[in-house]
């Protein structure tokens, strides 16, 4: 599956997602500026991304923890998600995400 990620400079990166990995891990390993301070424990909100509207609806709903953690993120929008909570799968092939401001 492919992840199309836009960085903070507006540059697009086409990344190969791995089944079962989180989008955060793929972004981080590709060198995108994802801090992911807590290492994917849904405890820090530093892997905040915007998911393109057409994909946002296809994702499983946010857990209460993710909703709570997003309260600590900056510049939250309706399509904000924590990328450590998005699991790569073929159903998400082509998903577009944008790294949120720091």
């Amino acid at each position: 599956m492919k992840i199309i990620a836009t960085d903070r400079d507006g540059k697009e990166h086409i990344l190969e997602g791995r089944d079962g990995w989180t989008v955060m891990e793929i972004l981080r390993d590709a060198g995108l500026p994802i801090t992911a301070e807590c290492g994917g424990a849904c405890a820090c909100a530093t892997c905040h991304v915007y998911v393109d509207e057409e994909w946002a609806a296809k994702l499983p709903d946010k857990s209460d923890t993710e909703t709570d953690m997003l309260d600590m993120a900056l510049a939250v929008e309706a399509n904000s998600r924590l990328s450590c909570q998005i699991i790569c799968s073929d159903a998400l092939d082509g998903i577009r995400v944008t790294v949120a401001p720091e």
Binding site: T67, D68, L70, D71, M72, V76, E77
Partner: peptide, 8 residues
């Protein structure tokens, strides 16, 4: 101000 009508 908060981005939603819910609080943690």
């Amino acid at each position: 101000v908060h981005h939603r009508d819910g609080f943690r």
